[in-house]
Amino acid sequence: MSEKLVFDAPEIMIDRPTHYCPGCHHGVAHRLVGEVLTEMGLVDDTLCVGSIGCSVFIYNYLDVDAVEAPHGRAPAVATGLKRAHKDKFVFTYQGDGDLASIGLAEIVHAANRGEKISVVFVNNTVYGMTGGQMAPTTLVGQKSTTCPDGRCADEHGQAIRMSEIIGGLGGTAYCERVSLDSVKNIRRAKKALRKAFEMQINGTGFGFVEMLSACPTNWKMDPVSANTRITEEMIPYFPLGVFKDVTKDGEE
């Protein structure tokens, strides 16, 4: 009997255990990025702009050139980098505190300018690295270390929906919200990444993929329950789907 390997870590992934907690979806998101870069033949042309949060160490796991941006500023850093090297593939990898709070101006304007960059946005509704504080994406009722009684809409406002905002901007070429909670959704996430990355390669414009993800540690849940929370609580509030695709007929 001869057998073949049908699933293995892509070569672009540096072979070391990650520092992420059990059940954290950053590992899945990293792998999907790595697989798409590999399949598109971009590995040696990729410039990764890391951000601040748990994923600051993405450069320890993806074997590509990288620079570390200040908190929230990755889209601005990526703008400068892409303008300096227009023939290279530039992407940012940002969490929800980084992108949707402190970096809101940078992400909105990079998208609105139609920068030829790609943004991987991991939304787990909480500040992970600093220990579970309320994020702009924290759902109403969700407990965090800075809203221990649960987020209150009157006091803190409601969770911000980024894909809806980015999808509404003129410079955005592709914007999709996906989820990492099931095999089907993970396959869809990979397709979305490929689509967003192609928008950059073809010079079409700005690509944005939001990935709903789990943070079991700061949600104070076991990994399997945390995964279920995405399905049952996050997706109803953060609907999955394509918010903008300029290559589709009938759209901008």
Binding site: F7, A9, P17, T18, Y20, C24, H25, G27, V28
Partner: peptide, 9 residues
């Protein structure tokens, strides 16, 4: 596909 830690071949 769902393993976050590249454990499974």
């Amino acid at each position: 596909l769902i393993c976050p830690d590249l454990v499974i071949k």
